[in-house]
Computed example of a mutant assay.
Amino acid sequence: MDFQPTQEQRDLRAGVRELLARRYGREALRAAVDAPAGSGTGGGTAAAAVDRELWRELGEAGFFALRLPEADGGVGLGLAETVLVFEEAGRALLPGPLVATHLAAGTVPGAALGTAVVTAFDLVGAGGEGVGGAAVTGGALVAHLGEADAVLGSAVPPAALLRRGEPVRSADPLTPLHRVPAPAPAPVPAPADGAAAGRPDGRAAAFRDVGALLTAALQLGSALRTLELAVRHAKEREQFGQPIGAFQAVKHLCAGMLVRAELARTAVYAAAVTADPAEIAGAKVLADETAVGNARDCLQVYGGMGFTWEADVHLHLKRAWLRAQQWRTADEAEGLLADDLLATATP
């Protein structure tokens, strides 16, 4: 059996990479990061991170409607293709509630077309109750609340939540956060691809599985990008008359990043094919560790300049930290894996 991407899938990934390079290249990323504080609606400490024009362009390209059936105006593709697309978004550090808006396509008006921005209670480790009923306490953190038109998993409009909440300083300059009261339970839409079929815990958990997988794909894209940045710098930066990539310590860092990234890529792609909850949990754990680990090692390859604001490495690290708390935390994913192993081992 050949698990390599098909030519159509490669073309899809190349097309998305080209679109994002043209519409959200490094200049656009830095312009967003360096925008004056408080110039947007996201908590008073960050500029508006969601480019509405780009959001609509992504919608027109089918980004948010990839898994919607063609009969419903969607593209009619599956999880495998969606993972490839989200990987490219992670590589470009595209900001905004991409996963929530994608999951809302078909249920929230305008989400599929990119004319609506949809966020979610996806920071499941931050307090409150996340999508799917992850019970925590002390209120919930919501990303991009000030820029959202709807909140997935809540019957309360974003404006009302915004009035009742308070801004929270975010590690990621392009992910504004608000802490709001714990949301009242609200029904979530059935995930596409029949992901809830046969699930004893119903559609809510299956919904979070898809969110976790797509977040893992974003982490994978970021990890692959920091690998590229480290290798490029190791080839270009010279010390003692030769590129620093010639030194064994730097070689080992880059090699470790590659091994880490390829292992995570295998896990994410396999989970996209099987849609198995345990495999998705494993992929999320690996992708989170890989995104954070590769960003840290990339900082080491860059040396002192890697810690400066002008370098992009810290942006990948901060986004990776945040994504590690979205949809499924490491503790949740490891618990799900443990339950699956126990169930398999029990006669």
Score class of each variant (00 low, 15 high):
Arg163Trp: 11
Val99Arg: 06
Ala140Ser: 15
His144Asn: 14
Glu129Pro: 00
Thr82Pro: 06
Gly96Tyr: 02
Glu147Lys: 00
Thr107Pro: 01
Pro157Lys: 13
Leu162Ser: 09
Gly96Lys: 01
Gly130Gln: 12
Leu93Met: 13
Gly128Asp: 13
Leu84Tyr: 08
Thr107Ile: 00
Val108Ser: 03
Ala89Asn: 06
Ala143Ser: 15
Thr115Asn: 04
Gly90Arg: 14
Asp72Ser: 15
Ala104Gly: 07
Val99Leu: 09
Ala184Leu: 14
Val83Ile: 07
Val151Lys: 01
Ala105Glu: 02
Gly133Ile: 15
Asp122Ser: 15
Pro97Phe: 13
Leu113Pro: 03
Val108Leu: 05
Ala140His: 09
Gly106Ile: 13
Val142Arg: 02
His102Asp: 03
Val142His: 05
Val142Phe: 11
Arg179Gly: 12
Gly106Phe: 13
Val156Phe: 09
Gly74Pro: 11
Ala171Phe: 09
Ser170Gln: 05
Glu147Thr: 13
Ala112His: 03
Glu147Arg: 05
Ala135Cys: 03
Val118Asp: 02
Glu166Trp: 09
Ala134Phe: 15
Ala143Pro: 06
Thr115Ala: 07
Glu87His: 14
Leu93Phe: 10
Gly153Met: 06
Ala159Gln: 15
Pro109Phe: 06
Gly74Trp: 13
Val118Glu: 01
Thr119Trp: 08
Ala105Leu: 08
Ala140Trp: 07
Ala182Phe: 01
Val85Cys: 04
Gly110Leu: 03
Leu161Gln: 10
Ala105Asn: 11
Asp172Ile: 09
Leu77Gln: 10
Val85Asn: 05
Asp172Arg: 07
Pro157Gly: 14
Asp149Gln: 08
Val180Ser: 02
Val156Ser: 02
Thr119Phe: 10
Gly96Ser: 10
Pro183Gln: 02
Gly78Thr: 12
Leu77Gly: 08
Gly106Met: 10
Gly73Pro: 04
Arg91Gly: 00
Val151Asn: 02
Ala159Asn: 10
Phe86Trp: 04
Ala111Ile: 11
Ala184Ile: 05
Ser170Glu: 02
Leu177Asn: 07
Leu94Ile: 12
Leu94Tyr: 12
Leu84Ser: 04
Ser170His: 05
Ala120Asp: 04
Arg164Asp: 15
Leu141Tyr: 13
Thr137Ala: 15
Val131Trp: 06
Pro95Lys: 11
Gly90Asp: 05
Thr115His: 10
Gly133Gln: 09
Val168Trp: 07
Arg164Glu: 15
Asp72Cys: 00
Val180Phe: 01
Val131Pro: 02
Gly127Asp: 12
Ala155Phe: 09
Ala134Gln: 13
Glu166Ile: 08
His102Ser: 14
Pro173Asp: 12
Ala148Ser: 15
Val75Tyr: 01
Glu147Gln: 07
Leu93Ala: 13
Ala160Cys: 00
Val180Gln: 05
Leu174Ile: 02
Val180Glu: 01
Gly165Met: 04
Gly110Gln: 06
Val151Phe: 06
Arg163His: 15
Gly114Met: 07
Ala92Thr: 05
Ser154Cys: 13
Leu152Arg: 03
Gly153Gln: 01
Ala148Tyr: 02
Gly139Asp: 10
Leu98Thr: 08
Val108Gln: 01
Asp72Gln: 15
Pro95Ser: 11
Ala148Ile: 06
Thr107Gly: 05
Val142Cys: 09
Ser154Gln: 06
Pro167Met: 08
Phe121Ile: 08
Ala148His: 01
Glu129His: 03
Leu103Asp: 01
Gly153Pro: 00
Val168Lys: 00
